[in-house]
């Protein structure tokens, strides 16, 4: 068989530097699609703002003690809930006022972040892993595997998301964060599975996957080296946007009294408590609501920004 290494190099038709001006400008700069997307994101205000908010939220989640000295759970009835917010005292316990049990609303908003962010991130991770796996297998293998897994997915899709989560939660007496995560993930994985399946079916037919098969590549190699990196973009977008949705779902469940329970601090529970006092003390309701909206919005904006950066059609 001929040895490639011994052949004389051919006269180059494309190497002439002037022939490809782009080669001169960006000499030797390897730009991956992710790299390009990053360049795009850095200049996108939506991304900068939402990413900044999310960084702050993550900091609050990890170190709530850095943001407030007050405890969210111990109240002093001296601080009656009619004690109005003192907006000039930024960062002090009385900043957002006190609730009916004399607890600092500001401290509760800070500590409540943890539950929301943990639920959002954990549900998204669980859903992406499980839904992604189901969708990938279903899309790649097709045939009866697809019929089975798609049928399974459709059954879960048929269950109403919030109502289903409520029923699941009823079965648990001890409702910790992880129980809520389970309930939401149990019903939430179908969307990712469907997105993944569609993306895999499209990518599976592309020529480069055919090329890998023609080379004799094994199924795991095709799945993880060729298909997975190319379907990550839509999955990441859907996952980021739904992260915000899971956070609001947790708040809704907690508001209804089916989600988290004391002593865990949660915005949903506070909104629920605040709505009972809405005529006399609006601040108990308003501040957790604002935080919740900002958090959900930040994740949805991030998802949108990532979608625009990754979508080749906008280029």
């Amino acid at each position: 068989m001929p040895d490639l290494t011994k052949t004389a190099p051919v006269p180059d038709e494309t190497k002439a530097p002037v022939a490809d001006p782009s080669a001169v400008v960006k000499a030797d700069k390897a730009r991956s699609l992710w790299g390009d997307a990053w360049q795009d994101l850095r200049r996108n205000w939506y991304f900068v703002i939402s990413a900044g908010l999310i960084v702050i939220l993550l900091l609050i989640t990890a170190f709530p003690g850095l943001f407030t000295s007050a405890s969210p759970t111990t109240g002093d009835l001296v601080n009656h809930f009619l004690g109005k917010p003192e907006l000039s005292k930024i960062g002090s316990p009385e900043w957002f006022g006190y609730d009916g049990q004399g607890r600092s609303v500001y401290a509760r908003v800070i500590y409540g972040t943890r539950a929301s962010v943990i639920v959002g991130v954990a549900v998204t991770l669980a859903v992406t892993l499980f839904g992604g796996l189901i969708g990938m297998l279903s899309g790649y293998f097709g045939g009866w595997i697809d019929a089975l897994l798609s049928g399974f997915t459709n059954i879960f899709l048929g269950l109403p998301f919030l109502l289903g989560a409520m029923v699941v939660l009823q079965a648990f007496t001890d409702r910790s964060i992880w129980v809520v995560v389970f309930a939401l993930a149990f019903l939430g994985w179908t969307q990712i599975a469907r997105v993944m399946r569609g993306a895999v079916i499209t990518i599976k037919q592309s020529d480069f996957v055919q090329a890998a098969r023609a080379l004799g590549a094994s199924t795991p190699r095709i799945l993880f080296r060729h298909i997975l990196p190319n379907v990550m973009a839509p999955v990441i977008v859907v996952a980021t946007i739904s992260l915000g949705v899971y956070i609001s779902a947790e708040a809704t469940l907690s508001y209804l009294g089916l989600g988290l329970a004391s002593p865990t601090v949660s915005w949903g529970m506070d909104i629920s408590g605040g709505s009972a006092q809405i005529r006399v003390a609006q601040h108990i309701l308003i501040y957790p609501s604002i935080m919740l909206s900002i958090t959900v919005l930040a994740f949805i904006m991030l998802g949108e920004a990532v979608r625009n950066a990754l979508d080749p059609k906008t280029r």
């Binding site: 038709e13 494309t14 002439a16 022939a19 490809d20 001006p21 782009s22």
Partner: peptide
């Protein structure tokens, strides 16, 4: 017969006659 090189990049059209490198 093959025209050498590549069609120009419109972001950076060669100076003078655009066809000169080829």
């Amino acid at each position: 017969f093959a025209i050498k090189g590549l069609p120009p990049n419109l972001l950076n059209v060669p100076s003078g006659c655009a066809f000169n490198p080829r």
